[in-house]
Amino acid sequence: MPKAQLVAAELPQAPLTVAAVSVRLGISPSTLRTWERRYGIGNEERQSGTRRRYLPDDFARLAHMVELIHAGVPTAEAAAIVRGETPVKTRENTRELPVPSHCDDILAAAQGGRAETLIRLLENAIATHGLVYTWTHLLEPALESIRASTEGEKPGYAPSALLTLAVLQVLTEISDQRPTTSTDQEKTVGILILTDEEHSLAAHVMGVALQWREHPTAIMSTGNHGGTEVCDRIATYIQNHDVRIAVVTGRGTACEKLVTTLIHDHSTDVILVGADTPPILNPKVLRVRTIAAAVEETLARI
Rank of each mutant, 00 (worst) to 15 (best):
T181R: 08
D265V: 03
P74S: 06
A76F: 07
H215Y: 13
E297D: 12
A254K: 07
D269N: 15
K3I: 10
T86R: 08
R61G: 04
L272A: 05
E151F: 13
R251Y: 11
D176G: 14
A292Y: 04
L258D: 02
L210E: 05
H70I: 04
R114H: 13
E229P: 10
I302S: 15
G72K: 00
E45Y: 06
V66F: 02
Y237Q: 06
D242S: 05
G227Q: 05
E144P: 15
L25Q: 00
A76W: 06
N282K: 03
P100Y: 00
H70D: 08
G49C: 02
L258T: 00
E67I: 07
T260R: 02
G226V: 08
Q239G: 04
N282W: 04
T128I: 05
V208T: 04
R46F: 04
C231Y: 10
A79S: 05
S30N: 03
A254S: 10
A246E: 07
L11Y: 03
L281W: 14
E229W: 11
A14H: 15
A127S: 08
E186Y: 13
A110I: 01
R37A: 05
E116K: 07
R120E: 09
Y133E: 04
L11K: 09
A4D: 11
Q13M: 14
L118H: 00
H129S: 07
S145K: 15
A20W: 05
L281S: 15
G49P: 01
L16I: 13
K3N: 12
P155K: 08
R37P: 03
E151D: 14
E151Q: 15
I238H: 03
T117P: 01
G112A: 01
V73D: 01
H102D: 11
Y157S: 10
V273D: 00
R38G: 01
V230M: 05
A300G: 11
I69T: 06
V66G: 00
V270P: 03
G274N: 08
A275T: 14
R91V: 14
R52W: 08
Q111F: 10
L262F: 03
V18K: 11
G130T: 02
V82F: 00
L171E: 01
F59K: 04
T236G: 14
L192F: 07
T188Q: 12
H102E: 10
A80Q: 12
V23S: 04
M65Q: 03
T17V: 10
V73K: 04
V99Q: 01
L262Y: 02
S175W: 12
A161I: 14
E77W: 09
V167H: 01
P98S: 02
E186F: 14
R52N: 09
R244F: 13
C255K: 02
G113M: 01
L118V: 01
A20V: 07
P100M: 00
Y39R: 04
V205M: 03
D184I: 08
G40D: 06
A63I: 02
I238T: 06
R244Y: 12
T253F: 06
S22D: 08
T134C: 04
P278T: 02
T222P: 06
C231G: 11
E140R: 15
E153C: 14
A110C: 02
S182C: 06
V88N: 14
A293G: 07
P2Q: 14
H241K: 11
A9E: 13
A203C: 09
